[in-house]
Amino acid sequence: MKATLIQMDIKWADSAANQKAAEQAIHNAPKSDIYILPEMWSTGFATHPENIAESDGKSLAWMIKMSKELDAAVCGSIAVYENEHFYNRFYFVTPDNEPQHYDKRHLFTYGNEHHSYTAGDKRVIATWRGVRFLLQICYDLRFPCFSRNNNDYDAIIYVASWPESRIHVWHTLLCARAIENQCYVIGVNRIGIDLTCKYNGSSEAYDAYGRIMVSCDDNRATAMTFDIDLEKQDSFRKKFPVLNDRD
């Protein structure tokens, strides 16, 4: 399976411009099975989502359209208003099935995300073309118990708005999650500046050995593609069965 990381700048609260930028980046990338966008890719990370979060499904509709056109999965998180609640919702869209979603479990209290958003309570694994993806959002990366591999997934996707000031933590924890869970880990971060933070990207993917498969340049909108090889990963897990000894 080919996976493409879409590292992009995000214009504040301008879903039309961000859809256009994402579409251009996807079309300029190699043909893939899955395209991964950052956290709140359609608006920027909004801790005060009033008048910003989507209730009309416009960005989700765009993801569905792109998925069908590309015959590929398209995923990333969107600020959503539904049933009088705000959610930081990670949509996983495929051409043939209803979209799956994961609502961010660990809200970023340091940035007051918990004051406006409702936390999710379900762990979500989406399967696409034989690969099982655990869906996670940004701050979830700091909580390894929640993402512990129970032999129920092959890869973790973290979509993020992770600031430049803490980027060392980003690199370290992505690698750690890959090693401890014997899986691929894909981290897709944004670039640019919003109302409070500067972002320098550093999107990357690791294999089960903790080796970097692909890494995006800092501070540049770009797309990078790599191969997910489940046969190789399964062979490593059988040879060195760490997961059998997990707590």
Rank of each mutant, 00 (worst) to 15 (best):
V93C: 03
F90M: 11
H168L: 11
E164Y: 09
T47A: 05
N189L: 02
D14E: 12
I36K: 03
R132W: 05
R89P: 07
F226H: 03
Q24E: 15
C138Q: 06
Y117T: 01
F240G: 01
M66Y: 05
R246Y: 15
P49L: 00
Y87V: 02
F92N: 00
R166L: 12
A53E: 08
Y206F: 15
L243C: 10
A176K: 15
L70G: 09
K198Q: 03
Y35P: 10
F236S: 02
I212H: 04
R142S: 12
T222C: 11
S165A: 15
E98V: 03
F90N: 04
E54F: 04
I26N: 00
S116P: 00
N112K: 11
M63S: 08
K122V: 11
S67Y: 06
F146M: 00
G130Q: 09
I186K: 01
R105P: 02
S59Y: 04
D121S: 13
K11I: 06
N200I: 02
H85P: 04
M63D: 03
Y87I: 02
E180C: 08
E50V: 08
D96C: 05
Q233L: 08
L141M: 15
P99A: 07
K20M: 04
L174F: 07
I191N: 03
G120T: 14
C138N: 12
D227Q: 14
N219D: 13
Y184S: 06
K2F: 02
S77P: 11
D103F: 05
N112R: 07
I26Q: 03
T94D: 01
F146R: 00
N88Q: 09
A61T: 14
A126G: 06
Q24T: 11
Y158A: 08
N149C: 14
N150W: 15
A119F: 15
R190E: 08
N83Q: 14
E54P: 00
D9C: 08
P49A: 00
N189M: 07
E98M: 08
F133L: 11
E39D: 13
I52W: 06
R105Q: 11
E82S: 12
T222S: 15
I64E: 12
L60P: 05
D218Q: 06
L5E: 05
V93K: 09
C145P: 02
N151R: 13
T196D: 08
R190H: 02
E39R: 10
P49K: 01
R105K: 10
R123W: 07
H168C: 10
Q7V: 07
P38E: 07
V188N: 02
L174V: 13
M1R: 06
T127Y: 01
I157N: 03
K20Q: 07
L230Y: 00
S165H: 11
G76Q: 05
H168Y: 05
R177I: 08
R129D: 12
H27C: 13
A61C: 06
A176D: 15
A17C: 04
T127I: 07
F108I: 01
T172S: 09
A25P: 11
I52A: 05
D207E: 07
C183R: 00
K122T: 14
V131M: 11
I10Y: 01
G187R: 01
D152R: 08
I10W: 01
